[in-house]
Simulated scan of single mutants.
Amino acid sequence: MTTSPRPRTTTQVPHHLLIGPDTHGVTRYAGEVAGAAGALVVRDARRLDEGDHTHLHVTDRLISPDPTAAADLVEELARRVRLTVTLHDVPQPTDGPRFHARTAAYARIVRASHAWATNSWHEHALINRWSIADAHGTVIPLPIQGTTGVRADTDPHVLGVFGFIYPGKGHRQVARAAAALRRAGHPVSVRVLGDAAKNHDDEIDELLRTSRERGVPVEVAGRVPEDEVGDALRRVGVPVAAHRNVSASGSVNSWIAAGRRPLVRDGAYAREMAALRPGTLTLFDDSTLVPRLEEALRSPGSTWIEPGTDLGPRLEDTAAAYRSWWASVAG
């Protein structure tokens, strides 16, 4: 089935093809951008007319568990429509055995698309380094929808980690740091706000087992309903984002949107975001996590963003950046 013919202009906002459930962060974000940009949302690619300018937010795992099959489907779509893409979850060596298949898939997706974007220069550099050298995309940072100055009573000795549980997300490191703090006399515990990522249920069992061995209380709260996320993030004593293989982080942005200034593992992406939004992150490395946590426990005000801090870009800024970019590649 196809839609009725529509007049086209070079500055027309492209249709947004949404793939996957709305509970997935990439799909949810794609819908938010579409709404803010005034785009028509399409859930079934068969409803797109030949030659339609179409935008797709891409992570291979949303399209297919097989990166090669995901690239096949994107190439097939690009033969029918004029495709622009935003690349998410870009490949990097910490992907493990799937790394080479993913880099090849993302190279094919870039070549098939009319133009491409990432959410950070860090991700753009990863694409150039590992997938396709000297390709030129644009960068449109993830927006934040939140306010500063809204504070709440906290559970002061709770270290909070938000997001899916999977290897490398940092839960184990936070538990090890909590053990060191408890040995130093701080009665801390760890609260995990999130559930296991697909096929990683064993990570919860392993986290709980090793934490018990270290004498660290760990609470796994499971998935937090969307309308309760802000309150949950404001309730913990110290927010921590310790994941190692960050390409872009919705969980860090969620902390910021809740008015929190999280402790974030140092790296290229973290430094880029700290420069984009000064005063919203506290960086640490492996040698400084415990001292940074001790400082936060002694000075809880340091875990909140100061009123008046600029959290931009906002969603409307992001939509404007997309509209400008789509117009620039319309030829």
Rank of each mutant, 00 (worst) to 15 (best):
R82C: 14
A30K: 08
E75F: 09
L48A: 06
H57K: 08
V58E: 00
E32K: 08
S64M: 03
D44T: 13
E76S: 13
E75N: 07
Q12D: 15
V42R: 03
E50F: 05
H53R: 13
R79K: 11
E76D: 13
H53I: 01
T23H: 04
A30C: 06
A78N: 07
L56P: 11
T23S: 13
T9I: 09
R8P: 11
V58P: 05
R80C: 12
T68P: 01
A30N: 03
S64W: 04
A36Y: 05
V81I: 04
D72N: 12
R79Y: 02
R43Q: 10
R43C: 14
R46L: 11
G35S: 11
G35M: 10
L40T: 15
R61W: 06
D22R: 13
T59L: 07
L77H: 12
H57P: 04
H55Q: 08
G31N: 12
P21T: 09
R46N: 12
G38Q: 09
A78I: 02
D66S: 13
T11Y: 01
H15K: 04
P67F: 00
T68E: 12
P67K: 01
E76A: 15
E76T: 15
R80W: 02
P7T: 12
H15L: 06
H24T: 10
A30I: 02
H15E: 03
A70C: 01
R79G: 15
D66M: 14
E32D: 08
V13F: 03
H24I: 07
R80Q: 12
H53S: 14
L73D: 10
D52A: 02
P21R: 06
E50L: 10
R43L: 07
H15R: 05
A34E: 01
D44Q: 05
A39N: 08
D44P: 04
